[in-house]
């Protein structure tokens, strides 16, 4: 399916949920902010949230340091 991830259009076949997509992109679920179609997703809903063709996501990954 066609997704827009951080402003860039991408074809992703291997992911049906947000959790699948994070795994596919090698992002750790407890270190990201996921915005799906401009709504912030709670961390505990990644597994249950299904992706649909045309979805737009902002994925913000945190690294340690401060």
């Amino acid at each position: 399916m066609q997704l827009t991830i951080n402003g860039q259009s991408r074809m992703v076949e291997a992911a049906s949920t947000v959790a699948d997509l994070l795994k596919y992109l090698q992002l750790e679920t407890d270190r990201v902010v996921v915005e799906l179609n401009r709504e912030i997703l709670s961390a505990d809903s990644h597994c249950a949230t299904r992706l649909q063709d045309g979805d737009s996501l902002e994925l913000i990954q945190f690294v340690g340091g401060g």
Binding site: E28, D30, V33, I40, S42, A43, I60, F62, V63, G66
Partner: peptide
Amino acid sequence: ADQKAMLAN
């Protein structure tokens, strides 16, 4: 990193 994400989320 996980605390940063916790706060933002």
